[in-house]
Simulated scan of single mutants.
Amino acid sequence: MKFLHSDGETNIYELTSPKELKRFISFPDRLYIENPNYVPSLMMDEMENLRWDKNPAFEYCDARYFMALRGGKPVGRVAAIYNRRFNEIWKKRCVRFSRYDVIDDLEVSRLLLSQVETWAKELGMEEVQGPMGFCDLDHQGLLVEGFDEKGLFITTYNHAYYMRHLEALGYQKFTDWVEMKMEKPNVLDPRIRKIAEYSLHKLNLHEIRLKKTKDVLPYAKQIFELLYEAYKDIYGVIPLNDKQVELYIGQFIMLVKPEFLALIADENDNPVSFGVVIPSLAETVRKCKGRLFPFGWVHLLRYLAAKKHDTLEFLLIATKPKYWNSALGAAIIVHTFEGAEKYGIRYAQTGPMLETNSRIQSMWSRFHAETHKRRRCYVKPLEKKSGEQN
C-alpha cells in the first residue's frame, strides 16, 4: 500500500497490487457482519472486476483504490474511476466514485472522497459522480430507502448514514433508481397469455426455446448489442467491448436456467427481445460469505441443483426500439411465469430501474408491484482553482 495522507488519527493509503485488493473487497463483509440484509459480493467476481489486468473496461477506464486505516484497522474504502468512454459519449468531464463503504465517521468519508476529488481535479474534470461503476452493468447507486429490506446478489447494501455523509460533504442528488417487489399470482391473467400470442403472431416473431443454458451462447453477442440499442438513451449507458461481454457471460452463465431466459426472435432468428431472471442467489452467497473456496462451492452446487426456490431476481429485460409498442413484454412474462410455477417461486424482485424509465416499470403494474427500495447517484461540482476558466 502507498501512504498518501494522515490527519493524525486516520491514515489514507492507495492500494496498488492484486493482493491488497482482497482487503479492499472484504472490508464491507466485516462492517456488516451482523446485518441480516447485507449480501457480500463474490470475491472471485470482484477481483476480476477491480484488477487492472483482468477487467476489459480498463481499455477505456483508469481506476484508483483508496483505503482508510485507523490503528492499523480498515475504517473505510472508496474507488475512483475515470471512464473516458462515458465522458465522451455523454459529454461529461467527471470522475466516478464506487465501492464506497465507511464507518459512521464523517471525517473518514471526507478524507477518502477528498482523494477522489483531488484526482478528478488533476485530470481536469469538473465534477464527481457516484456511486457508479465501470459500466451500467456494474453496481451503481447508494441505497437511500429500503434499509430494512433484504439485499440482492446483483445489488449492494449500505447504512443510512452514508447518505448523511455525502450530503454533508456537498454531494447532491443527480438521479435515482427504484426497485420493486411483487408476489407471484396463483394464476396468470389469461389476457396476458392472449396478448403474448397475438403479438408474436402479428409481428411474425417466435420464441426460441432453449434446452440448455449453453444454447444461448450463439446469441450472446447479439443480446448485448440489443441491450445497448434498447438502453443507449438511458443516462450512463455505454457500449461494451467484446471482452467485457465475455466477462459478464462468464460471471452469470452458470446461474441462468433455460426456464428463466426468454428469447424472442424474428424470422431470421435474430433476437429482438429478451428477459433474464435468476432464482435469488442472496442467501447462498451469504452462507458462503462471498467465497467459493475452499468450501463455498458446496452451497453453490446446492443452489444450482435445487428444484424449489422462493424468490426471483430480475437481471435484464430489453426490446428493440422498433417493438417498444408491441407488448412483447407479455411473452417474457408468460415464459417467466411458467418457470416460476415449475420451481415453486412465490416472490420476485427487480433490479434497479431508472426512476424516469416508466416503460420498464409499467410491465409490473398488473402484479401490484411495490416500490420498496431507492438508490441514488450523487454529484458534486468541483471548485475551480483561482484564475481557472472554462
Rank of each mutant, 00 (worst) to 15 (best):
N11D: 15
Y13F: 06
E14H: 01
T16N: 05
S17G: 07
P40K: 00
S41K: 06
N49I: 00
N55D: 01
P56T: 01
R64V: 09
R64S: 13
G76L: 09
Y82E: 08
F86H: 15
E88I: 02
V95H: 03
I103F: 05
D105R: 12
D105C: 07
S109K: 02
L113T: 04
L123R: 02
E126L: 05
E126I: 05
E127I: 06
G130E: 02
P131R: 00
D138P: 04
Q140D: 00
L143G: 01
V144F: 04
V144M: 01
G146D: 04
F153A: 01
T156V: 04
M163H: 14
H165Y: 01
A168L: 08
Y171F: 09
F174D: 12
K181M: 11
M182F: 13
V187G: 03
L188Y: 02
L188C: 07
D189F: 05
R191C: 08
R191Q: 13
I192C: 09
I195W: 06
E197I: 06
H201Q: 14
L205V: 08
L210S: 13
K211M: 12
K214T: 14
Y231V: 03
Y231W: 11
Y231P: 00
K232D: 02
L240Y: 05
Q244H: 07
V245D: 02
L247Y: 02
Y248H: 08
G250H: 05
G250L: 05
Q251C: 04
F252N: 09
F252K: 05
M254Q: 13
L255W: 04
L255N: 06
I264D: 03
A265L: 09
G275V: 09
V277H: 04
L281I: 10
W297Y: 15
H299L: 10
L300Y: 09
L301V: 15
R302C: 13
K308L: 08
L312K: 06
L316D: 03
Y323K: 10
S326C: 15
A327C: 14
L328W: 10
G329Q: 15
A330K: 10
V334P: 08
K342L: 13
G344M: 12
R346G: 14
I360Q: 13
S365N: 13
A369D: 08
A369P: 03
Y378V: 06
Y378T: 04
E383T: 14
K385T: 05
E388C: 04
